[in-house]
Design a protein around this nucleic acid. Sequence first.
DNA 1: CGCAAGTACCTTTTT
DNA 2: GGTACTTGCG
Length: 717
Amino acid sequence: MVDILEGLNPAQREAVEAIEGPLLILAGPGSGKTRVIAHRVAYLIKVWGVRPRQIMAVTFTNKAAREMKERLYGLLGSSVEELTVGTFHAICARILRRDGKHIGIDSNFVIYDDDDQMSLVKRVLQELDIDPKRSPPRVFLSTISASKSQMTAPKDYVKSNYFEEVAGRVYQRYQELLAESKALDFDDLLMKVVELFQRQPDVLEKYQKRYHYVLVDEFQDTNIVQYILAKQLAGKHQNICVVGDPDQSIYSWRSADLRNILSFEKDYPDAKVVYLEQNYRSTKVILEVAHSVISVNRKRKEKGLWTENEEGLPIVVVESYNEQEEAQFVVSEVDKLVGKGKYKAGDIAVMYRTNAQSRAVEEAFIRYGMSYKLVGGTRFYERREVKDIIAYLRLIHNPYDSVSLSRVINIPPRGIGSKTTDQLDQMARERSIPVYTVLQTVSDDKSEQSLNSRTARALTVFLELLNELMKASQEMNTVDLFDLIINRTGYKDYLYENPDGEDRWENILELRTVADDYRELPPKEGLPAFLENIALVTDTDSYNEKVNAVTMITLHAAKGLEFSVVFILGLEEGLLPHRKSLDDPDQMEEERRLCYVGITRAKQRVYLVRAFRRSSMGATSVNLPSRFLMDIPPHLRTTPRGAADKLNPSAKPSTQQAKVEKPPLSAGEQVVHAKFGEGIVVSCVPSGNDQEVTIAFKGDTGLKRLLLSLAPLEKVT
DNA sequence: CGCAAGTACCTTTTT
DNA sequence: GGTACTTGCG
């Protein structure tokens, strides 16, 4: 029993032991927060005999949830299965599948992501005859999302100016179409659960009785709806424990509200507050640098973060000419650090403000033949071909899903063009019925004269295909259904009509391996489980720490991680802080926190790099050094001597290269591909646990990027 | 209706 | 430097 508390410092111990009533844990970076949460859960179960199913732990990402479970597995064994661990969104989705019917939500609802939402808004704009050029769909979406994050329904939406009047109508219609599609967006998942609990006290009571202990991590990044939700769930037992750090609040753009954590004590007057201030992660210098940056913020509570760790090296501030040179510096410095045997590539991370910045660094890594892990970026699930197949799967699961329907109704082309789909949309609107129902009437009722016979036939063929697939889904496992979709639609041939068909087809195969995880489930469970996973699990979640390669990641996504060495790129006015934040003091404070989060990820070394000029979106601009650099006292920083040498683009990738896993193919080798014929290897770089080979083929085929494990390749000797 | 070529706009960050 | 949307032709 005592062993659970062993090795914890007094504050951590206090946080673990305070099990009754509301508890606020203010945890600085590297203060062992995750450890405290895990031990607290273990303590509840092992010492107080709380049943695992009575505990809910809410995390910020699915990955954090998985790690929490893994950690607890080590402490508790298999009983972790009974715990409820997940993001607010995942937990809410589960609640709504189960009990959403009480407020009219079909248990087969689909979850609309950003892309789907955008399609829907565009359709609304078209219907309402609003010019998408004058009023960008994105603006409506963020207005809608902001409203939902405050629990404002369309009818309550305040319209005090012209824009709001229009936005109100868009919101109204958007919501109607969602309902018609039996779809919920991310915000709905949260909002509808709150609504469910408000309207059905007995349902709320069921959950309140079940969850004796509610724990919310990253509380500084929760929004009002999430706050209400947590309050509702803990309403009976009042055992709510929230953990966070206001200095690491970086999601206000997603309606995260810092007031949640700042006013927790007001809402729960008898709340106990524990400060975790000892840092176990970083050197003294790194903590001081971080502090010098964050302490400029005015809207913050000072806390006394300290460490017993060694002093450490000054942080390195580097100026480069442009982003190529910046990348060059990073790569050769990584090469040196790893070459000296001081660090493994996996101990190192490169961080940046915007995803677009990753390109130059990636190119440099590829040139050096060094492997890297890219977190985020162009996301797998956002690829066109992947979305197409997912749309088919969603449609089979829920044919009322209008976004998926309009996506695939003519993919591959089957003679149903925009004129026809416009007509279908219009008929749906006039009769206030879903498009799927219109489709059924058109196909049943031969007297439907509004369409000519050729299009009517095309629609019937499509509907029959859909019906066939839906029928098949009742008795097939997920992979067989997947294959059936591909075969019956001729999707592979469709892809191969384009020169990039092979690449795209490989993505389909990768999606298929995900579907394969659901092969064993009965038909009726497999598909929904697969779709839920796709909707809620992002690529960031699947990031694998075990692979020994440098991590490339945005500052946002880096929250919660730690690395021995951290490079932060683009410390320039307009980039970090981002130009969209320059004229808003609150947003500027958030940029500062973002920088703080980045610095505090580091255990031993920090490099802050900037470029004198940088090209983005075609044009190049000259940028001033970030104001954050000015806030770092000179005695804590250094600039590498002979920086110019390191920045020499012709500098060779030193000895280190031998240490990089030897690629199975190297540049210049001749190969034969089953389809493309003869070619010469241009490069071969690791990509995930595979190798990506770039090959120049003879003839018209030209350059191709292929995955080694999949491509039918042979070496010519 | 399908497809090719041209254009505007984009990029802050993600469940 | 890319893509999603528009335009114009067959």
